[in-house]
Amino acid sequence: MTKGTILSGMRPTGRLHIGHLSVLENWVRLQEEYNCYYAIADWHALTTAYDETEHIKENIKEMLVDWLAAGLDPEKCTIFAQSQVPQHAELHLMFSMSTPLSWLERVPTYKDQVQQLGKMGKDINTYGFLGYPLLQAADILVYRADAVPVGEDQLPHLELTREVARRFNHLYKPVFPEPKALLSKVKLLPGVDGRKMSKSYLNIITLAADQEELKKQVNAMVTDPGRIRKTDPGNPDVCVVDKYQGIYASAEHEDIREQCRKGAIGCVQCKKKLYQLLEEQQSPLRQRRMEVLKRPGYLDEILHEGAIKARKAAQETMEEVRAAVGI
């Protein structure tokens, strides 16, 4: 039985944090079941950071180390940097000739991100940012992927990809499948200060965190501000530590919440327990990172070999696309 094909990727805009781990764990499972292409989407990074490129090469390598530490195996999946496969850009250009402008303007995240980043002084009123969902469509369809792992918030992007495929197949001839969504549940973890986890807020726990950094970030987690003494009744609903315990101490979570409400367990004790749970998760990742970094040239080798494999598959698609269009 022929395996289905999957494309997924991440933008190398900074260190990955533990909020990314559930996505990577899903990718590791999928590499056993599908023909998987995993792209380090450096062109996509330029859509919001076109003027901040000094760390992009470093970020690509750091992201790759995190992927390998999480369990991605280049013998089981194709790992590559998007910019090393020019067929992505060629297919994006081809799609841009026939995709209505209104399709891009209606993407739910477009206006919201323009406004939000505008408040931070970032101007992303650019052709590239408007067209990034179309580049995503090209990323997926250049491998004729028939499935894409996504969260619910990404479904509009995938539906645009399906519409682009449908329109091309109607205008010319059937070349592309309409990829289905593989809905995945992502662990929604807040930053240590309760806000969205973001490197801009300095509130993340990175996948590369050592024991000292991990302990520091757990100790910095916001707890119930109304609780002064250990024996005071607490409100776990306003506690960041509680959100993490709901995931990492799920079997004991309700008992911990009850003890908190009764003042039978203190915030320091809760943080110590959470640190131990996170350290159990982080320690194997840390060890695998060290093993990867001991191999000189290994990262470059993976990206080189991955790009060769990706270009071969993408070129086969583009030959059919050119023939269909008649150029």
Rank of each mutant, 00 (worst) to 15 (best):
E75V: 02
K187Y: 09
E178L: 15
E152T: 14
F168H: 10
T78F: 01
L117N: 01
G118V: 02
I228Q: 02
R227N: 03
Y275D: 06
P190I: 05
K180M: 12
P100M: 07
V268F: 10
L21A: 03
A324Y: 01
S98I: 15
L274W: 00
N59V: 02
M97H: 12
V164T: 04
E52L: 14
E25V: 14
E305W: 08
I247N: 13
L46D: 03
V142I: 09
P12H: 09
R227F: 00
M318C: 10
P133Y: 09
G246M: 06
G4K: 12
M221N: 00
L274V: 04
I140D: 10
K262R: 15
L278T: 07
M290I: 13
T78S: 02
M197Y: 05
W43M: 11
V238C: 08
A324K: 05
E178N: 05
T5E: 05
L171F: 05
D123P: 01
A310Q: 07
Q276Y: 11
C239H: 08
K57Y: 11
A324D: 08
E159Q: 13
I256G: 03
E252I: 09
P100W: 04
H253K: 11
Q87G: 07
L117A: 01
V241F: 08
I308D: 11
K215Q: 15
Y37Q: 15
R11W: 12
K312W: 12
L130N: 01
S102P: 07
L277K: 15
G9P: 04
K111F: 00
S250D: 14
S8E: 02
R289M: 05
E212W: 14
L21T: 00
A310F: 03
G326L: 05
V150W: 02
I56Q: 07
N26K: 13
L158Q: 01
Q269R: 13
R144H: 06
A310D: 07
K61L: 15
I256Y: 13
M197W: 03
P284R: 06
P225T: 01
E159H: 06
R15F: 09
Q84T: 10
I308G: 03
G263Q: 00
I79D: 03
S8N: 06
E319P: 09
Q116V: 07
H253P: 05
D146I: 04
K230F: 01
L299G: 02
R166G: 09
L64M: 08
S98V: 15
Q113N: 06
Q259W: 03
T13H: 04
M120Y: 10
M94S: 14
T53H: 08
S8V: 00
K312L: 12
W27I: 10
K119G: 10
Q281R: 14
A220E: 07
R144K: 14
V241R: 08
P236A: 03
L30P: 04
E320V: 13
R106Y: 11
T53N: 08
E213I: 10
E163P: 12
T47K: 03
D112K: 14
G266P: 02
H44S: 05
G4L: 08
H170Q: 15
S22F: 04
T109A: 13
Y37E: 11
Q82M: 04
E152C: 08
H92E: 14
Y298R: 12
W27K: 12
Q84K: 13
G306P: 11
